[in-house]
Design a protein around this nucleic acid. Structure first.
Lengths: 115, 115
DNA sequence: TCCATAATTCGAAATCTATCTAAATTATAC
DNA sequence: GTATAATTTAGATAGATTTCGAATTATGGA
């Protein structure tokens, strides 16, 4: 036998969020609620080797370097990505646990009761 | 034996999002990237009976009725909640599949390889 | 039919966000 | 030193967002 668990509801729907928790969560969600940042996140995450050079990222958009830099900083401040300089270039990678935490907010806690 | 699955990565990080997909997703994420709407969503979802009256929701905030109405409309337009008038009052409930879809974006597809 | 209440819609004000240009700054390689 | 990659800063602008008060719609009861 496997799952005794009950498909309840996303953590966000189990009990009302406090005002403070909601404010904090909104900051995290705002970080990903932008088309450019979503693409940056997915480009970084899907890049070979798990990391991407800013030079590649900037080249993929029709935006200036300062603008890309700004978006990367928003993602970084939110704790979703991290970076390191190696020689001339700066590389970014995803922090999987942070992204997973986002997912857990909306995902039912338990597996569906075995069908 | 249970899981042969590999913990890969969130769908968002498997391959780069197209510009169109990113734009569409951003709309959905923007809907939840607001403290008031997050609280509304969690209040509706955690309310006894699975639905909540606008009158209860409005009373819980220090905001006017039109403002709450606006936020409910954003959530509704995003497909996250639905509503029905019953007599004098209007009731809202969560659309679980829509909320779950949000979660799936950031959740690793597979269970962790059995430890 | 008229009135009171619940909720939404409308229109406007204040604020925030994304983006640019341009310039300055930092770090590294040659 | 000089060139390149990237970030930061400042100021500017266009557009989106949050919020309100007033007007509107829908319903139930006197």
């Amino acid at each position: 036998m496997t799952a005794v668990t009950v498909q309840c509801c996303a953590p966000i729907a189990r009990e009302p969020l406090t005002e403070d928790d909601a404010a904090e969560l909104a900051v995290l969600l705002k970080a990903v609620a932008d088309p450019v940042r979503l693409r940056l996140l997915s480009m970084i995450g899907s890049h070979a080797g798990g990391e991407a050079c800013v030079c590649d990222l900037t080249a993929a958009f029709d935006l200036t370097a300062p603008t890309i830099s700004h978006h990367l900083k928003v993602l970084r401040t939110a704790g979703l990505i991290d970076s390191e300089r190696r020689g001339t270039w700066v590389y970014y990678w995803i922090i999987p646990s942070a992204v997973a935490r986002l997912g857990e907010l909306f995902t039912p806690l338990a597996e569906p009761a075995s069908v």
